[in-house]
């Protein structure tokens, strides 16, 4: 029972990061109909930048802030300089362009920082606290939970309660009508990319210290897990992305705890396969079909 509680809490804290990353994927999918395969590489780039800033200033938290700002800017740049020019006549085009961006970013990071793992220190202790003799979450896990929670709530509030959120949703659902109503649709798209990339940068900063460290490919497996989470929840549903990300985190934790960590990648793929076979639109698909 203790082990189950531990694995559940561990899965949820890992899942929180996947949830944030899945949310970033969903934001771009909703706004631009692009699955941003480059999101992992973009997040890694901001994390390298963050650790450079941290090394130069001696403050992890300045580096953390730098990652978020760099994430926002990088998202806007990727939209304005690359994705804006992608021809959408074939759904494969944006995928190929995004994969090209992955190669480019990873190659540049390799040239600048090398292809070795660099240490990435966590700012807080990763030793689990014990409550009533039971090992539970570490201070760092709690920090990751809180950071993701704050971002999710802030995004939900922005999208549903503010004028700019209404503009962003309208621009995504009905670009032509939105322009007629005075919405700067292309600006909203860039803002969407910036926000998504900022959330991706946050997820990268949170997850990299818990794994092997900084490496151009550090986010590859996180991307697969988060993408699965996004598909489980339904690519069109932000709440679905959060729940899907948490579910994938739990699944990975149980599989690695009870069946061995070798099987986690397989388990993620099986989950993806099962959802695509049984409910391809995801668990949180809207009841009514889009594109009326």
């Amino acid at each position: 029972m203790d082990r189950f509680v531990f694995l559940t809490l561990d899965g949820l804290s890992r899942g929180a990061v996947y949830a944030a990353f899945a949310l970033a994927l969903v934001l771009i999918w909703r706004a631009a109909r692009i699955v941003n395969f480059a999101q992992g590489a973009m997040a890694v780039a901001t994390a390298y930048f963050a650790y450079s800033v941290a090394a130069a200033t001696g403050s992890y938290w300045l580096g953390f802030l730098a990652a978020l700002v760099a994430g926002l800017l990088l998202g806007a740049v990727v939209d304005l300089a690359v994705m804006r020019f992608v021809d959408h006549s074939s759904p494969l085009n944006p995928v190929i362009v995004a994969l090209g961006l992955v190669l480019l970013i990873q190659a540049v990071l390799g040239m600048v920082y090398g292809n070795e793992f660099l240490p990435a220190e966590a700012p807080l202790s990763r030793a689990a606290l014990t409550v009533g003799g039971l090992a539970v979450l570490s201070p760092y896990d709690l920090f990751a939970f809180a950071a993701v929670g704050v971002v999710v709530v802030a995004l939900a509030w922005t999208f549903t309660r503010t004028p700019v959120g209404l503009r962003m949703r309208a621009a995504a659902f009905a670009p032509e009508v939105s322009r007629l109503l005075g919405v700067n649709v292309s600006g909203m798209l860039t803002l969407g990319w910036a926000l998504a990339s900022g959330v991706g940068a946050l997820a990268g900063m949170l997850v990299i210290p818990t794994e092997l460290g900084l490496h151009p490919h550090a986010m590859d497996l996180v991307f697969v897990a988060a993408f699965t989470g996004a598909v489980v929840g339904g690519l069109d549903s932000p709440p679905g992305a959060v729940v899907g990300g948490l579910l994938v985190g739990l699944l990975l934790s149980y599989v690695s705890g009870y069946a061995g960590s070798d099987l986690t990648a397989l388990a993620v793929l099986l989950l993806l396969l099962a959802v695509l076979l049984v409910r391809p639109a995801g668990l949180f698909a809207p009841a009514v079909a889009r594109r009326v």
């Binding site: 209404l166 309208a170 659902f173 009905a174 032509e176 009508v177 007629l180 109503l181 889009r290």
Partner: peptide, 22 residues
């Protein structure tokens, strides 16, 4: 526009407020 351009995914209130956001 033709076909009216109501945004189906937004509520009535959101659709209307959209008309005055600018």
């Amino acid at each position: 526009p033709e076909g009216r351009g109501v945004v189906g995914e937004l509520t009535v209130d959101e659709n209307l407020r959209l008309g005055g956001l600018w």
